[in-house]
Design a protein around this nucleic acid. Structure first.
Lengths: 383, 383
DNA sequence: ATGCGCTACCCAATCGTTTGCGCCAATCGT
DNA sequence: ACGATTGGCGCAAACGATTGGGTAGCGCAT
């Protein structure tokens, strides 16, 4: 196609047609209002014809240099190899592509140093905004200046208690503390997956509600001795799910003793270890809520090692309803949350923030999918 | 920091110092040989000092426009929510970051139309190269021109038979058919995860060998009636693992009848369906090789539904040794392959291709991790 | 005094687009 | 018939960085 002289540019087209590059530019990329008045119908047709005969593609670097808009967004996650995160990212990518954005996505391993490095890196790439999926509750990497004097300038109030009250079942949280104010180094950003205590605009699952749903279910089954494998204390996903669960049990007059809430990494081995701790004591709980499916699977491994039968000797519920949950030998009760939708909404929210509109956090409604791992009622072997 | 006048540029620094921008440029970003002769030690010091006081970051759009190098690479995968793929990507991202590259990664859902769209999109973003993790054996999206006349211009020979012989245990395959020749629209690219029959430069697991290892294990356990859940017929991962397995059994004088090799999607439900088909007949196999762990988990679900006990009534092996494999109620025998390493090597290979060096494909050596799902010898209930 | 080679800079073109402004001709209003 | 509009373009200045080519001044040998 573009046989001859190097890459095809506006200038190339203009010269071949004896026109000026500005005319060609307006016809091909001008705002649709301007396209009409840019050239006569005939000229416009010739331009368009040659352009796609030559396979013209605007050079995004030139465009970005001129317009100061890159149509790029940076996306941060702890690790893409976790299916929950990967699924959120699928939503992000889908929506971003739809809107003509491309994404840089990186793994920060939940390490604040790496978070700051990566934020600086994507900022250096001149992204239009960021989607942050690895926020810590205290908003650490979002506020502190990085090594290069970069970092998110937060206009929000300081963090409150680490274990917040959570969204409490409402599907909207407050508006951004800074409205459309500047974020990291002035770049707009939104949170996804996890929120912060500072209330930065975020799209999350209503994790608090999710935790309550599990508690409700356990209560209905008659479980009085329960425990939580709570994930990392710095992640709102873990703490909100936990507090939702704990709150409901407290309301039922059955407050959980502290040793029944164990924090651990969000993976199978983390879940395994926590479960061993919880299950080896003499006052073994009859039901465990693992705040994600990976930890739940680790718990299954631990239960297996201890000779406990799932759904009979031990009830177990997970969170996220990953595709594996249903296929396990004893299918896993889990809280289903719309993950890809979170990603899509995060993109839309970011776009609104970039446009300078006021934005509000969103919490998506989860629901409980009951399967055999929680039995049909309290198992015969449990009191 | 950069309090006053907008973003800090070379010009800004130059003016404040009464120097010319080219001087500043050479000091800050020139090749290290040139930096020395660019300015006097004293001047250089002042430049550097002011630069990082102001937090100068070169504008990548301007640089790319000028140098025609973007330090961007496009990465294509079927779906990031599959852990195998996500893990490869972690390796890609790690190595890319190390080398100063950023990546655009997209999900193509194994749909050739989307593949072509996405290739066109990243090419439009002026990436320096591509890493393709979703290649089909026939190399479809790599050779056919896309809608915009884009697409990979392959210089390689046409595809051979669909079921190739595989790398056959060698750890190097032939060099690129086109050497450093142009790829998609002239852009350099390498394959990862899956190879093509056309022999494009690729970094893969030695899948053929992986299949053989499983066959070897099954044979040692005494299994004579075996089956393969083979994955998608267009993916070399599936076909190579299958042919490795099948070849070994043929060598042992036990060729597999065709109905014992079932293709299916690479996910739990695909595995589940295929397993039901294989296990419901009267001549039920005593061992199944699922070409990936997800399909293996689907098989576990099917076995559960049919009342078969894993490791006793049925031996099962998977592939990739995902973190779940070890935690399952009956731990899963699986072929371990260095996935993140694949990703890292793919980046290095691409870099060499971009540099115009001749490159050769690489196949990484897998090894078998034996666990309870294949029992210790042929189970008592199996003949 | 001339020429040579340094050092330490400066000059200016260039990459491909975007966009406010201006110009010329044709058309319109009166 | 004359000034005002408007359609259809061209002009040129950005955007921020890179880079091949000066050149002024100096020391030094001839």
């Amino acid at each position: 196609m573009a046989g001859d002289g190097g890459p095809v540019t506006l200038r190339g087209i203009a010269e071949q047609l004896g026109l000026h590059v500005s005319t060609v530019s307006r016809v091909l990329n001008g705002p649709s209002g301007e396209q009409a008045r840019a050239a006569s119908g005939e000229t416009a047709r010739r331009i368009r014809e040659l352009a796609d005969e030559l396979g013209y593609r605007p050079n995004p670097h030139a465009t970005s240099l001129r317009t100061r808009r890159s149509n790029l967004v940076g996306v941060l996650f702890p690790r893409l190899s976790e299916i929950v995160v990967a699924t959120i990212y699928e939503g992000v990518e889908e929506e971003a592509t739809l809107r003509g954005l491309s994404t840089f996505v990186t793994n920060t391993h939940d390490d604040p140093t790496i978070q700051r490095e990566r934020i600086a890196m994507v900022l250096g790439r001149r992204v239009d905004g960021l989607i942050i999926g690895d926020a810590h509750l205290d908003g650490a990497a979002l506020t502190d200046p990085g090594p290069g004097g970069e970092g998110l300038r937060s206009t929000g109030p300081g963090g409150k208690s680490l274990r917040g009250t959570g969204p409490g079942g409402k599907s909207l949280r407050g508006t951004s503390p800074g409205g459309t104010g500047p974020g990291l180094g002035g770049a707009p950003f939104v949170l996804v997956n996890r929120r912060t205590d500072a209330g930065h605009p975020a799209v999350t699952c209503d994790d608090h509600l999710g935790g309550r749903l599990v508690a409700e279910h356990f209560l209905a089954l008659g479980h009085r001795q329960v425990a939580v494998i709570a994930g990392e204390p710095f992640a709102s996903t873990g703490t909100d799910r936990t507090s939702g669960f704990v709150d409901r049990y407290r309301e039922a007059g059955l407050p959980l003793p502290t040793h029944r809430v164990r924090h651990c990494p969000f993976d199978t081995t983390g879940g395994h270890r926590a479960a061993v701790d919880l299950l080896s004591g003499s006052d073994r709980p009859t039901a465990i809520f693992a705040v994600n499916d990976l930890a739940a699977i680790g718990t299954i491994g631990a239960a297996r090692d201890l000779g406990l039968r799932l759904g009979e000797d031990l009830a177990l519920a997970g969170f996220n309803d990953t595709p594996l949950a249903a296929e396990l030998p004893v299918p896993l009760t889990s809280v289903h949350s719309p993950m890809a939708e979170q990603g899509r909404r995060a993109v839309r929210l970011l776009l609104r923030r970039i446009a300078g509109e006021p934005v509000a956090s969103e919490a998506l409604r989860p629901d409980l999918v009951v399967r055999a791992s929680t039995g049909t009622a309290i198992g015969p072997s449990l009191l």
